[in-house]
Design a protein around this nucleic acid. Structure first.
Lengths: 204, 204
DNA sequence: TCAATAGGAAACTTTAAGTTTTTTATGTAT
DNA sequence: ATACATAAAAAACTTAAAGTTTCCTATTGA
């Protein structure tokens, strides 16, 4: 509950971080609809007006909390296994990994509260609705394919944006619909039964 | 506004249908969040308590309205255009068509609402964890492919369940992430750039 | 024709969002 | 050290909509 010593008044960064942490915990424990500005303020040991001074409304606060406590755990490193198949598999695997490792209660919170996923999608257009070209994940896929081209594995020009973004789309579709961490088998299916055959077909 | 004659008091079926129609119109015009029980009651020429006497809450009312005015529009007929490409395109197109009567705002609102989401899940079984084999839409895709096989276009045995369900998965991914009706171009991309090449590749 | 049923109207409670005001602690500049 | 600006704490307030209750009255049908 973040009990503060009497006579100590937090402000600035410190207070802001306490609020974001409280919001994140509240989100995991009660879910988006249950969580109120009041409950977050109370948990952070402060009050509503302090929250509204920083974020225009509830969704802005939640987005800020997720930006701080969830998204940074997702890596965007470009693997280098020596093959296109290996790189794509490794990249998808790494994207999905945080869900298994960011703490049991976090995953449980996210998985048990479908609204959190819907929230991410609905109120963070920049994550998913951004033009594909501006998307970090798509950029990573493009980089992986560029490497494959340098090795002579593919001709990048022959691949449409939709093909490039397909593995990520399928990964996200699995997450959204199954609401549980994705198995390695599913990742392998996406790569071996869908993506690689398509890439090969496009080379003709 | 469904003005009723003075001295005439509707009841039972008649009143219920007037309310559902008002709810549906209200939903289309203002979207889920804007629409209030009050506004629906007023539009139907009645009052809130009558609504609450029939449906426990707002989402139940919306669900009832959608069940009456939206879901019946979604067909599951198997087209017969003479080609696999044509059949898949036609099927996806027919599934998506009814969404165009609903605005993006409404789709967004509906998806944000847990009760409604559960209902959508219930009536669009693709989105849930149901085994693919029990799914009506997947069954339709299988039937389309069976017809193609009879014409000698494909060998059905060589297609994995994931490939068969791919067009529908991508369609739903578009809907969930874009939260707006899907364009014909997108459907064509799914069919021509993804599905058909994959089917062809699988025949080798 | 009379009692049961259910619609109409309106006041009411509750809940949470969001705002405003007042008081007071604290960091910073003088 | 003092004073000043800043922003946190506290609480009252407004608003909007959900949902409830009550009372009255039109309609139905036994």
């Amino acid at each position: 509950m973040d009990e503060q010593k009497k006579g100590t008044r937090r402000r600035g960064q410190v207070l802001e971080e306490a609020i974001l942490f409280a919001a994140w915990e509240e989100l995991l424990e009660t879910g988006y609809t249950q969580m109120t500005m009041e409950s977050v303020a109370t948990r952070a040991g402060t009050n509503k007006s302090v929250l509204y001074r920083r974020w225009p409304d509830k969704s802005a606060l939640v987005i800020a909390a997720m930006r701080k406590y969830f998204f940074p755990k997702i890596t965007n490193e470009i693997p280098n296994t020596g093959s296109l198949r290996g790189d794509v598999y490794a990249y998808l695997h790494a994207r999905v990994e945080p869900l298994k490792t960011i703490g049991a209660e976090t995953i449980r919170g996210l998985i048990m509260e479908p609204m959190v996923w819907r929230m991410i999608i609905a109120s963070m257009p920049q994550i998913i609705q951004k033009p594909r070209s501006e998307n970090k994940m798509i950029a990573a896929m493009a980089a992986i394919l560029k490497n494959a081209e340098l090795r002579g594995e593919v001709c990048l020009e022959k691949l449409t944006p939709r093909i490039i973004s397909l593995p990520l789309a399928l990964l996200q579709y699995e997450l959204i619909t199954k609401l549980e961490p994705i198995s390695d088998e599913t990742i392998a299916e996406i790569v071996d039964d869908i993506f690689m055959p398509l890439v090969r077909a496009a080379q003709q």
